[in-house]
């Protein structure tokens, strides 16, 4: 009898864990910027890119770095050139914003990437040396200015 009671309890608990009641406060899916223009197509179908983009980029990374192979198909710079565009006000979302093409999903999936520690997060024509590409880095620079008491403007 006790055994049967335990078994039922276990099954019920399992069911509750498997199918949690979903409320209306579900995390919204990321909004991804689709490149504009007729006939603009990614180098692979969307579902392939979603699963394998990191492998394509990683493979190309080593070939470019060590062997000088510079084909554009899986080039990281080409991803950026196509996918990162200014919004209606002409602003480009920095890599640490959820409006940035890459970070939109990465933030949703809680997968941190460090590509943009070194790589530009926007096409060359939008790179503005005096501009702020990240709130965090800007803050760091301000802190440094205060610490060093230079008061000067750090570029």
């Amino acid at each position: 009898m006790i055994n049967r009671f335990l078994r039922i309890t276990f099954i019920l608990t399992g069911l509750v864990l498997l199918f949690p009641v979903t409320g209306s406060a579900e995390t919204p899916l990321p909004v991804i910027h689709e490149p504009e223009g007729d006939g603009v197509k990614c180098v692979e179908p969307e579902d392939v890119m979603r699963r394998d983009h990191m492998n394509f980029i990683l493979h190309q990374r080593d070939e470019t770095m060590h062997e000088g192979i510079r084909t554009s198909k899986y080039s990281f710079a080409e991803c950026i050139n196509c996918h990162v565009e200014p919004d209606d006000n002409g602003n480009i979302a920095a890599a640490d914003s959820k409006d940035h093409f890459c970070n939109a999903c990465h933030e949703y999936a809680a997968v941190t990437i460090d590509c943009f520690e070194c790589h530009a997060d926007r096409p060359q024509k939008f790179i503005n040396r005096g501009g702020k590409s990240s709130a965090l880095q800007e803050e760091m620079h301000q802190m440094l200015t205060v610490i060093e008491g230079t008061g000067g403007e750090l570029k």
Partner: peptide, 8 residues
């Protein structure tokens, strides 16, 4: 920290 790197 570096920002505004060139693409290449």
């Amino acid at each position: 920290a570096v920002n505004n790197q060139t693409l290449s």
